[in-house]
Design a protein around this nucleic acid. Structure first.
Lengths: 228, 228
DNA sequence: CAACGGTCGATTGTCAACAATCAGCGATGG
DNA sequence: CCATCGCTGATTGTTGACAATCGACCGTTG
C-alpha cells in the first residue's frame, strides 16, 4: 500500500510528452542539439526510453512552438534562425512590451516593484557569477515580469512563444562568439523608469533597449558572415 | 493570393493529420461541434475512418491553436470563450493591426490597393447575399490583408492564431442570437483611410473599429446572460 | 558522357492492441 | 447519517509493428 498521494514533494507524475518537451527544449537551447541538427524520431525515442508515439507528439509541440521544423516523410531539424527572423522578433516584441506597460501602468503596486527589483537583482547576480546561460534566462525573466503583471493572459502566451526562440538564438549566438552575456548596467534605466511616473519615457526606453539589443546581435552576426 | 487550384490536378496527397485538422476546424467553427462539446478520440477516429494516432496529432494542433482544451486522462472539449478572453483578443488585435499598418504604410502600391478593394468587394457581396458565415470569413479576410502585405511573417502567424478563435466566437455568437453579420458600411471608412495619406487617422479608425466591434459583441452577450 | 529510370536504405506516416488514469457510484463500517 | 474505500466504465496515454514516401545511389541507354 504505497499509495502515497498528494505528497508536497515533487511528484514527477507528468505525462511523458511533457517531460520530453521540456528535456528537448533544454537540449536545444543549451546547444546539445545545435541549430540545423536533424532529429530522428526512432533514435530520439531510444535515448529517452519511450516509444515513438509520445516522442512524436512532443516534437509536434516544439514544431508549433517554432523550435523545430519538419518536412513530411523527410526529416525534422532544429531551426536555424535567420537575421531577418530575429529582427522580426525584436520589432514585434517592442510593440508587445509597450502594450504590456500601458496595461499595467496604473495598476503597479508594492508587490510589483518588489518583484521587479528581485528579478533585476537575480539578473545582476547571474552576470556577476559569469554564468552566461542563466544570464540569458534571467534577462528574459526580467522582461517577462511586465507580461505576467499586466493581467493579459493572451499577451503573455504570445510572449512565451517568442521567448523560446529568442533564448535559442541568443544561446547559439553566445556559443558561436565567445561569452558575451548582457552587461550589468544594461537594464538599469529600464528598471528605474519602470518604477517611475513617466510612461512616455518608459516607452522610449523600450524602443531604445530593443534597438540596442538587435544591433548588438546584428554586429556579431555580420562579423561571423565576413569570417566564413 | 492563396493558390487555390494549381495548374495541374489537385494532388490530395496531404497527410491525414492536415486533412483532419481542416475538417475539424470547419466543424468547430460551423457549429457542428458547439463550444463545450466533448471530443472523444475513439469516436472521432471512427468518424473520419482513421486510427487514433493521426487524429490525436490533429487534436494536438487544434489545442495549440486554442480551439480545443484538454485535461490529461479525462477529456477534450471545444473551447468556450469567455467575454474576458474575447476582450483580450480585441485589445491585442488593435495593437497588432496598428503595427501592421505602420510597417506597410510607405510600401503601399497599386497591387496593394487593388487587392484591398477586391477583398472589400467580396465582403460586400457576401453581406448582400445574406450568407452570415462567409460574411465572417470575408470580414476576417479583409483585415488579413494588411498582415499579409506588411511582410512581417511572424506578425502574420500571430494574427492567424487569433483569427481562428475570433471566427469561432463570432460564428457561435451569431448562431446564438439571430443572424447579425457585419454591416455593409462597417468597413467603408476603414478601406478609404487605408488608401489615404493620413496614417494617424487610420490608426484612430482601427481603435474605433475594434472598440465598436467589441462593444457590439459585449451588448449581445450581456443580453443573453440577462435572459437566462 | 549526360540523361533517364529503377532499386534501396532511411525516415516519417499509420495502425490496432494494451496499459494507466480518472470520475462516478455504491457497498461498507463507524 | 455520512465518510471512506474499492469497484467499474470510460477515456486518454503508450507501445511495437507495418506501410508509404522521399532522396540518393548506380547501372543503363541514347
Amino acid at each position: 500500500m504505497p499509495a502515497k498521494k498528494g505528497g508536497l514533494g515533487q511528484l514527477a507524475r507528468r505525462t511523458f510528452r511533457e517531460q520530453i518537451v521540456e528535456a528537448l527544449r533544454t537540449s536545444i537551447i543549451s546547444g546539445v542539439l545545435p541549430p540545423g541538427a536533424q532529429i530522428v524520431e526512432s533514435e530520439m525515442a531510444l535515448t529517452f526510453g519511450v516509444s515513438r508515439g509520445p516522442l512524436r507528439e512532443a516534437l509536434g509541440d516544439l514544431i508549433k512552438e517554432g523550435l523545430l521544423v519538419t518536412v513530411p516523410y523527410t526529416g525534422t531539424h532544429v531551426v536555424d534562425l535567420s537575421l531577418d527572423e530575429v529582427n522580426e522578433i525584436f520589432s514585434l516584441r517592442t510593440e508587445l512590451e509597450i502594450f504590456a506597460f500601458r496595461q499595467v501602468w496604473e495598476n503597479r503596486d508594492e508587490a510589483y516593484f518588489a518583484e521587479l527589483n528581485a528579478r533585476h537583482d537575480r539578473l545582476l547576480a547571474s552576470i556577476a557569477s559569469g554564468d552566461d546561460e542563466s544570464s540569458i534566462v534571467d534577462e528574459l525573466g526580467l522582461h517577462s515580469h511586465v507580461y505576467e503583471a499586466c493581467g493579459h493572459s493572451l499577451l503573455l502566451s504570445v510572449w512565451n512563444g517568442l521567448r523560446g526562440k529568442l533564448q535559442l538564438y541568443w544561446a547559439a549566438h553566445h556559443r558561436a562568439h565567445g561569452r558575451r552575456g548582457p552587461l550589468p548596467e544594461g537594464h538599469k534605466r529600464y528598471v528605474e523608469l519602470a518604477q517611475g511616473d513617466d510612461l512616455d519615457a518608459m516607452i522610449e526606453e523600450i524602443r531604445d533597449h530593443m534597438v540596442r539589443g538587435f544591433s548588438k546581435t546584428e554586429t556579431f552576426l555580420r562579423a561571423r558572415e565576413n569570417l566564413k
